[in-house]
Design a protein around this nucleic acid. Structure first.
Lengths: 152, 152
DNA sequence: TCGAATTCCGACCGGTATTGTCTTATTTTA
DNA sequence: TAAAATAAGACAATACCGGTCGGAATTCGA
């Protein structure tokens, strides 16, 4: 399978929506209703994105969420990781693991390399690209990634 | 998360083991015990790999499994898909889906593109590469994939 | 010819993670 | 002050996955 979680899907939908909204804030309810997503769940997703500094929240009657920075400086990888935690292809992908087969595993290193490649695939797709729904001009592989934004 | 299933991990471990074995067959029990994997589960994994024509099985007392073709002609993607079915990043990745948000989803196409990139990442890593545990010389992206083997 | 080793196949169970709901508190604006 | 919104945590429902079990069918060797 190798699926994203539904929360991650919802997060990407919301991020694209907010990117298209420009500087105008949108509430959880508004987004949720537009895409047929349970309101409370959407709210939670947005909260987590805000805590991870991908969104800026504003409480109160006319409140809502806005992107914290230009969508060109945020990648799909950023969103996924904000919601689901670090991308780990196998249990052993993180160093401090309790994988049963750690000692005898014979494919750990190659899979770790694959994980890296997946990560750069996710990292080179920006939210801006999501919003425009057009592939960016092809980077020379590994040259530039929106995941590595110089300053927060 | 974005994890492989454990069955897929076991499958890759077994494939590498068999690749290193060369032409000598290995039984499910033998592999399972060597890597600390439950025997019945390992057996199931191998059965599925055999049914998908990645392995050749031989029943009976001195039976076991062998690779069906050169490990250079099988990719990690082949193994993953044999075990877990087609790689689908989202529910909507397959055309005939019952995703709730299908009608209103705004990120379907870009995510489909990401799926393609992940698939080529998995497709360009061969079982032979797993076995040697050395990265192949970098392909020009998309040029050649072990997934597209000309003849069975 | 018999028995042991092995692949094959389906059903089933249990735990865990994920999804989704509910409730309450807090903040802000009109 | 009331309404609208975020913030946060508890909790139920459910789906999925890892693992187990039992019973065939097949093959080899003694």
């Amino acid at each position: 399978m190798l699926r994203f979680s539904k929360k991650a899907d919802y997060a990407l939908i919301a991020m694209k929506h907010l990117a298209l909204r420009g500087d105008q804030a949108a509430s959880a309810r508004e987004i949720a209703e537009q895409y047929g997503i349970p309101v409370e769940l959407m709210a939670k997703v947005l909260q987590r994105l805000a805590r991870r500094d991908l969104l800026v929240s504003h409480q109160g009657t006319r409140g809502g969420y806005k992107l914290s920075r230009s969508p060109r400086l945020m990648s799909v990888a950023d969103v996924i990781q904000a919601i689901d935690g670090p991308v780990t292809v196998t249990a052993c992908s993180t160093q401090d693991d309790q994988c049963e087969q750690y000692a005898t595993c014979n494919v750990r290193d190659p899979l770790w390399r694959i994980k890296e490649r997946i990560l750069t695939a996710l990292g080179t797709c920006t939210i801006a690209e999501l919003a425009s729904d057009a592939p960016e001009p092809v980077h020379p592989p590994g040259t530039q990634s929106a995941t590595w934004h110089p300053s927060a």
